[in-house]
Design a protein around this nucleic acid. Sequence first.
RNA 1: GGAGAAAUGGCAGAGUGGUCGAAUGCGGCAGUCUUGAAAACUGUUGAGGGUCACACCUCCGGGGGUUCGAAUCCCUCUUUCUCCGCCA
Length: 423
Amino acid sequence: MLQVPFIRENKALVIERLAKRNIDATQLIDDVVTFDEDRKRLQTELDNTLAESNTLSKEIGNLYKSGEAQKAHLLKEKTSQLKEASKQLSEALSNKVEALNELLYKIPNVPNKLVPRGNSEADNEEIFNEGDVPKLHDGALPHWELAKKYDIIDFELGTKITGAGFPVYKGKGARLQRALIAYFLNKNTAAGYTEYQLPLMVNEASAFGTGQLPDKEGQMYHVTEDNLYLIPTAEVPGTNIFRDVVLGETELPVSITGYTPCFRREAGSYGAHVRGLNRLHQFDKVEIIRVEHPTKSYEALDGMVEHVKDIIKELKLPYRILRLCGGDTSFASALTYDFEVFSTAQDRWLEISSVSNFETFQANRLKLRFKNSDGKNELAHTLNGSALALPRVLAGILENYQTKDGIVIPEVLQPYTGFKIIN
RNA sequence: GGAGAAAUGGCAGAGUGGUCGAAUGCGGCAGUCUUGAAAACUGUUGAGGGUCACACCUCCGGGGGUUCGAAUCCCUCUUUCUCCGCCA
C-alpha cells in the first residue's frame, strides 16, 4: 500500500501516474487526504483526553496516600466521564483508520515514469527481441500432443487423481522437470542468490503481507480447517521472511531464490488457449527475490532482467521482453518486465517470467525497513521475478526443439537430464 | 493429542497495581586516552502517532476484561520449552 505522507505531498503526481493504469484516482486521493486529516484530529482529541485522565489518576493516587479519600472520590467521578469520552473517541478513531485503510487497499502502486499508458496487453511495449525462431518439420505438434506422443506428461491421469490442471510428469518428462529446477537454482545461486526451501502454506498474516488478501482470496486454495493458504507463488513465503523486520543498512541487498510448486485456483479461466501446460492449478516455479536500498532498486531490476535474459539465451529459446503498460502492470508493481518465449508450434508468445520492482509498496504493508545512515528506520524496496516458471519453458522447449526423430534437449540441460533426446 | 512452565528493548535478564518506556549486563554508536588499535573510562542507544520544535499519546506475545490507575490481577488466543503419547 502507498504511504499517506507520500500521497499528501505528491497528489498531482500520484493522480497523473495512476492515469497510466486508466484509473481516475482524483476522488480517491482527495478522500485519503481528508480521511487522514480526520484521523489526526480524532487522534489529537483522544490523546488530550487520555493525558487529562492520566494526570487525574496520578492525583488520585497522591490523594489516597495523603489520606484525602473524599477529594479522591470527587476526582474519580471526573475520570469516569473522561473514560466514557475516550472510549467513544477511540472507537471513532479506529473506524476512521479502518476506512482510511480500505481506501488505501484500493489504490494500486504508482507506475514508474517509464511505464506506458494503456489498458491491455496490446499496449505493452516490446523493448527487446532475440533468438531465432526455428523452422519446424512438417507435422510439428503443439506440446500437449508431443507430451502424449512421447508419454512424458499425462494430463488425463492428473485429472483422475486430482482434477484438471494437475498434470502428471512421467519418465523423461519428470526428469526434465527436475533438470530445469536444478539448472535454474544453480544459475541463481551462481549469481549470488541464496537458496531457500520455503513453506508451501502460509497463514493469514503472510497472505495479507504480500497483498493476496483481502482482494485475491478467490485465487488461492484455502485450507479452512487450519486457516492456511496454499501459496500461489514463492513470493508470498519468500517476501514474508521480511515482515516486521528492520535490517541494518549493510545487510542490503538481500537476494534469495527458491523453488516451490505454486497453486492457483484460476477460477473462471477455461478455454482453448489454456490447453496443456499453458495454465495450470499446480505448477513449478523458481523465484528470485531481492530487498534493496531505495537508491539501488532500479539498478537491481535491470540486473534481474539481465540475469533472466542470460538463462533464456543459454536455453537458446526465441524470446522478447515487454515493458508492461499501466493496465497490465500488477497491482503492487511500479514497473514490470515480462519475458515471453515464442512457441513455433502454437504460433504464439508464452509468458515465462515477470520481473517487478515494488518499491515501498509491499514493504509498507510488511513493515520491512532498514536503518539508514541517519539511524532512522526507512522502508526498503522489494523486487521479485520468476527465474523461471517451468510449464511454459517446458512447452517452449518441447515445441521449439522437436524434430522428426524426437525432442532434442538443450545443451545446457543435458548434464542435468543425463539424456540428449526424448524419443 | 494429554500434563506442566514460560513470553519484557538488538541479545541476555530484573520488575512491589501508581514515582516504569521499564533496573542491570552484553552489544551498537560517539568521545577521552593512544602514532594506530585493544583495554579502561565517560556519554549515548526501542518503535509508532503528533508538533516548526517541544508538549503529549500509544506499545512489555495478540485480543478482551477488572481498576481512578495494569508489564504486574482475571479471561482468551497464539507461540516456545519440558514430560508423556503418536509418527516419516
